[in-house]
C-alpha cells in the first residue's frame, strides 16, 4: 500500500466507485458503482488495471489533488479542463505524473460532461465490502467511510506501478467511445407497466426534450418539461427496479432512475433506457436536456454488444517514441 493522493479540493461530489454490488440488491443495497461504467472501464484499461478496479468519480470538476507518489493515471468521461502543475493535460490518455505535482480538474471544456473518472495504476486501496469498493451513500459504507471525499483525505493505491511507462501517452480512440452529446437521445424499451399508459402519454414522453432538474442526484434524475397527460393513479406493489427505468409518479413528472436508485419502487414504469445509452445519461448535469426514442430489444442487445466491443478496444503502447515524447514533455529523467 502506497499513499497516492491528497485531496486539496473535493469539488461538488467526489466518491470512490467501481462496478458496484449487483448481488447485494436483495439486502436492499443499491447496485451503485460508477454512473458512467464505460468511462470507468476505459480509465482502468488505460492504466492496465482490472476493469472493475476502484477509481474516483468526480462530478462537474472543481477538484484538486496533490500527488504523493510517481503514478500512472488516466482521466476519462466528462471533458473537463485538466492541468498538471498548471500544464494542460489530455483526457482519455495514459499519463505519467510525479510525486509532488498538483492535478486540477476544473469546469467543462465541452458543452456536455458531468462525471470524470480518475484511475490510478494499481487501483485505489479501500476496503471491499459486500463485493465492492464503491461508496454506498445510502448505506454510508464503502469507499472512504461511506461518504464523499473531503479536503485533506488521503488515498492509497494497492500496488503503484510505473513499469507501464511505455504506455504513457496512449489514447483511447475517439471512435470507440459512446456518442456523448449535449442533447442525447436515449433509446427506451416499453416498461413493465405499459398496460397502464395510453398512447397519448407515451407520445408526450417521446415528443419533447426533458431538462434535468436541480432535484437530481446519483439515485435518479427528476425531469422537467411539463407533466405527462393521464398518469396512472393505480398503486402497484413495490417491486425490484433497474437503473434506466423511467418512473411516472401521480404528478406525471418522469423520474429516470440511475446507479444509486433504491432497489425497489412502487411507481409505474413507462419505459427502460437501454444499457448502452446509460453512459450518455450519466454525462448530464441539472439544466442539461435529453430526449427519448423507442427502440426494440434486438437493437438494444446489438447496441450493448457494440458498447462491450468498444470497452475491449485494443490499446497499443507508444513504444520508445511515446516514451521519449513524454519524458521530454515532463522533463523526466529516463533513468533514476
Amino acid at each position: 500500500m502506497t499513499l497516492a493522493l491528497r485531496v486539496l479540493r473535493p469539488g461538488m461530489l467526489t466518491t470512490v466507485q467501481d462496478l458496484g454490488r449487483p448481488e447485494a440488491q436483495h439486502y436492499g443495497v443499491p447496485v451503485g458503482g460508477a454512473m458512467d461504467r464505460f468511462a470507468l472501464i476505459a480509465a482502468n484499461r488505460l492504466v492496465s488495471n482490472p476493469i472493475g478496479a476502484a477509481a474516483l468519480e468526480l462530478t462537474a470538476g472543481g477538484c484538486a489533488f496533490e500527488l504523493l507518489a510517481a503514478l500512472m493515471v488516466a482521466i476519462t468521461g466528462a471533458e473537463l479542463n485538466i492541468t498538471l502543475d498548471g500544464e494542460p493535460l489530455p483526457t482519455w490518455t495514459t499519463i505519467f505524473a510525479r510525486s509532488g505535482q498538483s492535478l486540477e480538474l476544473t469546469e467543462r471544456s465541452q458543452p456536455w460532461g458531468a462525471r470524470a473518472y480518475l484511475a490510478i495504476a494499481g487501483g485505489l486501496d479501500v476496503p471491499e465490502m459486500l463485493g465492492s469498493r464503491s461508496t454506498s451513500l445510502a448505506g454510508t459504507f464503502g469507499g472512504v467511510e461511506g461518504r464523499p471525499l473531503r479536503a485533506g483525505d488521503l488515498l492509497a493505491v494497492d500496488m503503484p506501478r510505473v513499469d507501464v511507462l511505455r504506455e504513457a501517452g496512449r489514447t483511447w480512440p475517439a471512435q470507440a467511445r459512446p456518442p456523448y452529446s449535449q442533447l442525447p437521445t436515449l433509446r427506451i424499451l416499453p416498461g413493465p407497466h405499459s398496460d397502464l399508459f395510453d398512447s397519448a402519454t407515451v407520445a408526450a414522453l417521446l415528443a419533447r426534450a426533458w431538462q434535468i432538474s436541480s432535484q437530481s442526484n446519483r439515485m435518479g434524475y427528476r425531469l422537467e418539461g411539463g407533466s405527462l397527460p393521464n398518469p396512472p393513479t393505480s398503486s402497484i406493489p413495490s417491486h425490484g427496479v433497474v437503473p434506466g427505468a423511467i418512473q411516472i409518479p401521480p404528478d406525471g413528472g418522469p423520474i429516470l432512475l440511475t446507479a444509486d436508485a433504491q432497489t425497489t419502487g412502487g411507481y409505474p414504469i413507462i419505459g427502460v433506457v437501454v444499457g448502452a445509452d446509460l453512459p450518455l445519461a450519466a454525462q448530464l448535469l441539472p439544466g442539461d436536456q435529453l430526449r427519448f426514442d423507442l427502440t426494440t430489444v434486438t437493437e438494444a442487445v446489438a447496441a450493448w454488444k457494440a458498447l462491450k466491443a468498444w470497452e475491449a478496444t485494443p490499446l497499443g503502447d507508444n513504444g520508445i517514441v511515446g516514451l521519449l515524447a513524454w519524458a521530454a514533455a515532463l522533463d523526466l529523467p529516463l533513468v533514476d
Partner: peptide, 22 residues
Amino acid sequence: IEALVPGVSSLLVRFDPLTVDA
C-alpha cells in the same frame, strides 16, 4: 443470471443479454 431482487409478490431477475434472452 446476474442478480435477483425479490419484492413482496415479485422477483426481478437481471441477466446478461449476450448470454441469454428474456
